[in-house]
Design a protein around this nucleic acid. Structure first.
Lengths: 137, 137
DNA sequence: CCTTGACCTGGAGCGCGCTCCAGGTCGTAC
DNA sequence: GTACGACCTGGAGCGCGCTCCAGGTCAAGG
């Protein structure tokens, strides 16, 4: 139960597009859960086609989007922003500037986060090395 | 309304211990909110003394703990763990090993987080530089 | 004396991002 | 034929970490 045929494979498509994947497969490969994947679809972060039996069939493209989404989530981009971003993508190429702006602003957020983490790490390291315990400085 | 006198200041304490602070002051200095500070107290992350009027009077020591707490929160240490940590501190010096372990494990978590962020940042940078948009790779 | 504003308490409410559930359909394996 | 496991839908529930609210006290300023 690995791959699903979405469309009748003629056998000789150009540059084998690797058969579509079932939701379970995608969840496993992207370290998410089927629940999360269905949730992302529900809230419009991705649209996935169905096979003959009505089951989700993730194309390569879909999987790449899932990977993108999970990366953005891992870096704490709010789902709202991701929805906005996807909306812009759907609206066409003329929204590229706004998308770019969104990404740039997210980049800044990530950098700030990194700085915070570095600061916290310093405190943690101090606690660990100069170990007297307690919660003060 | 800046500083509060907690105990009758004899005028010549040793090495001026800086007067206790009101909750609003602490919130401002630590970039938190009074609500959060009260919440932390409620859930046992800190115990703060009161002045004659029944108001919280944060000592230097208390403020340092608040700083510590906020740093740990910024680095995503779960409140549960922070509660455990404080509990260990209260139990005395013999719990130092467990505290150390807690901190070490948190350090690892932070490092993992940093790695994730770096990976996400790479994706973001790619999106920004090679800008064609879309949500796939 | 009265107003104002910072503080107090106990408890309810909320936004986020999932996560779980009930009840049902498929399709292969025995 | 039937049992199983992976999938489907719509909707409810949940854990976290605050955040807000009502109703009240208190101290200083005009």
């Amino acid at each position: 139960m690995t791959a699903i045929e979405t469309a009748p494979s003629t056998g000789t498509e150009r540059a084998e597009a690797t058969a579509a994947l079932a939701i379970g497969e995608v969840a496993e490969r992207t370290s998410t859960t089927v629940d999360t994947l269905r949730y992302y679809e529900r809230i419009g972060l991705i649209e996935v086609g169905r096979d003959a039996g009505g089951r989700r069939a993730y194309t390569d493209h879909d999987v790449r989007r899932v990977v993108f989404l999970t990366r953005m989530r891992q870096s704490e981009m709010p789902i709202r922003d991701l929805q906005r971003y996807v909306e812009l993508v759907n609206e066409g190429p003329h929204t590229a500037p706004e998308r770019l702006a969104l990404m740039e602003s997210h980049r800044e957020a990530v950098r700030r986060r990194q700085t915070e983490l570095a600061a916290a790490l310093a405190v943690i390291d101090f606690k660990i090395t100069a170990y007297g315990g307690t919660c003060g400085a």
